[in-house]
Design a protein around this nucleic acid. Sequence first.
RNA 1: GCCGAAGUAGCUCAGAGGUAGAGCAGCGCAUUCGUAAUGCGCGGGUCGCGGGUUCAAUUCCCGCCUUCGGCUCCA
Length: 673
Amino acid sequence: MLEMRAEPCSLRILRQNAPPFMSTERKTLEQRAQMSDIERLRHSCAHIMATAILRIWPDAQFAYGPPIENGFYYDFQMKHRITPDDFEKIEAEMKKISKENQKFEWIGISREEAKTMAESGRLGGLTERPGNPSVFKLDLIDKIPDGEQISCFKNGDFIDLCAGPHVGYSGKCKNVKLTSVSSSFYMGDETKPQLQRLYGTAFESKEELEAYFVRLEEAKKRDHRKLGKEMRLFHIDEDVGQGLILWTPNGAVLRQELQNFISEELRKQGYSQVFTPHIGKLALYKTSGHFPYYKDAQFPAIVEPDALEQIAHEGCGCAEMTSRLDAVSSQFANQINERTGREVIGQDRIMDAEKLLDGFLLKPMNCPHHIKIFASQPRSYRDLPVRLAEFGTVYRWEQSGELNGLTRVRGFTQDDAHLFCTEDQVAAEVLGCLSLVKIVLNTLGMSDYRVRVGLRDPDSGKYAGNPEQWDRAETACREAAKTLGVPFTEEPGEAAFYGPKIDFVIKDVIGREWQLGTVQVDYQLPIRFDLSYTGADNKPHRPVMIHRAPFGSMERFTGVLIEHFAGHFPTWLAPEQVRILTISEKVDAFADDTFAQLKAAGLRVTLNNDADKIGAKIRNAQLDKVPYMLVLGEKEAAAGGVAVRHAKRGDLGVKPIADFLSEVTSEVRERRL
RNA sequence: GCCGAAGUAGCUCAGAGGUAGAGCAGCGCAUUCGUAAUGCGCGGGUCGCGGGUUCAAUUCCCGCCUUCGGCUCCA
C-alpha cells in the first residue's frame, strides 16, 4: 500500500494505487486459509508453472509465486531469459503436468530439515541440485517466525516452501495461459537481486478463460492513449519532451468544458479564482520544506543569469553550486525552527549568507503561491474562510519509466484550491469540499468509487500539531465521509504528518482503481509561513489550511474519463456535438442554413457535404463518436426538419429543427449524461 | 532509474544485406446516392537518431532517444 512519509505539504498527487498484491509481506495462516477457490487454483498454477520451468531449465531458483487479481506470477532467477517465444513451450509442459494429475501434498518439516533441503537445492526444485542452493527459499525460511510450522507442498517431483492452500490435483489447472514476462526486485527492494517475473492467468472453465481475453481486448479498445490518438484529443511530442501533454483542439474543448463546469461549482461555493506564475523563488520552497527534500522529483533549479555568470567566474563546480542552492542562512534556519518548535532544518544546511545562491523552481505544487496571496493582506476572522482556487500547472520530475499517457506526466494542471479557515470552520469546509467532489463525480456518472480516510497512527509521535486539534480534524473528516453515502475505509497511519486526509479512489469501467481527488487538512504550512488572522479577541490566530482537488489533475482525470466513456462523451463534453450529413448536393443550401442555426445556438457543429454516400458519412461520424448526426435530404428540406441519429441510440426520426435545437441545448446546459 | 520488448507513410501493419509495400486516411476526377465503407486515378517514407562492419545497411553490430509491459518511485 502507499506509504505515507512525513511530507511537509500538500496535495499528494494522484496516483494509481499500488495493487494490494504487490505486497510481498508474509500472509498469516488465517489469511491463507481465506484464499478463495480461484486464488487457490491460480496459486497451484504458479507451482505447476515452476515445475514446467524446472523441467526445461533445471537451474531456475524460485522466490515467490502468489495469486493476483487476474491470475498469478512466479519470480525466479535463472540463466536463460524468458521471452514470449518461450511461452508455448512452457504452456505445453504445464498442460502435460495438468494431465499427469499430480496430487498436491502438504508436508510439514522442521526448520533444520527445511534448511538442509534448501541448501541442497531440493526446495523449490525437482531434485537435489548440488552447488545450486535455493537462496531465496533459505531467506524465506529465515523470515518465518520461530515456532511456526514450516510448511511445504509437493506436486510430482516439485517441492516448494509454501503455506498453501492448493487444489487437490493438478488436473484442475488446465485452463491456463501465460500472459507476460517482466522483471521485479526480490522483496520489491531495489537493492536486492533483479528477478524474472512470469505472469499467467487461469480459470475454472475454458469459457471463463476465453471471456477474460475478450474483456482484455475490449479494455484495450478504450485505452485513453489509443483513443486520444484516434480522436485527436492530445499529443505527446518527443521534441517537446516526455510526459508533457499537448492538448490538441478536440482535447482542449473537453478540458475547457470540464474547467467551466468546475468553475461554476466553485463560484456557487464561494471560491475566489486566482492566477499565479509557473515558477517561484527557491526560498519559497525552502520555507514550505519542499526544497531540497524532494529535489529528485523536481526539475532542477533555475539560476539567474547574473548569478550564473558570477559563479562561473568564481570557478564554482556543479557540486558546489548544488550545495549553495540547497543551503540556507542561519537566520532562515532559526526562523523556521522556531516557528515549528523543532529542528526541521539541520545545522548542516546552514551557510554564510554571501555564499548562498538563490534561484527559481518550476512549481511542483501551488500551495506556497496561494499562501502568499492569503498573506498579502491582513486577514480578519470575518474574512474567513478564504478559498483560493486555481487551475494551477505544476511540474514534477517523474522517473522516465513511470510516464504513462495522460495518467502519469511531468507537467500537469491541478484543479487546485486552498482554503484558509478557523479551527471551528474545518468540519464545515471539509464537508463542502467533499460535496463538491460528489457533485463532480455524479455529473460524470462515475458512481463506482470508494473513499479512504487517512488517520494518524496513534502509536507514532511524528505528527505535528496538538492531539485535540487532530481529534477534531479526524472527526470532521470521518463525519464528512459519512455524509457521502459511499463506503469508506479508515486507515490509521495513512494521514500526512501535518493533518488527516480523504482520498477518492475511482474505478473505471474495467474495474481498475485510480486515486484522483483528495482533501487534506494541514496544520503545518500555516506555521511554516507564520500565517495569522485577527480574531474577535483582537489577537492573532493561526488559520488552518485545507488542500483539495476534486479531479486531481486535468490530465489524469481526462485520461480516466476517456476510458470511462470509451470515447463516447456526453454531448456537453463532446468536441464535436453535431454533424450535419447531406444526402445530395440538392440540399446544400438547406444544410448551410441548418448549420448556421445550430452554430448560432452555440453548438459545436460541423457540416459534411462531401460527395460520399450517406452510409459512408454515417459510418465516419460513428467512428468519430459524434453524438448527433443530422441526415438532411430533400424530404427534410421540404419539411424544414432534420432526421436525427444518435451515435448510441440510433435513428431517432425526423423532427423540426427548433425541437432538436431546444432538446440538445437543454441537454448540454444540464450536462446530461 | 532498473529488467525486457518494440520503433517502417497521418493511422494499422507486411517486408528483406542490393536504397521499400498493403489497407485505411489525404488529394483529383467521375457518381447525386436515404442511416456503418461508390468507383477510378494520384501524391506521400533519410525504414526513430548517431556511429561501426560491408562493394552495398532500413536490414547485421554498438551507443542513444522514444514508446510499451513490469519493477522501483509517486510531495
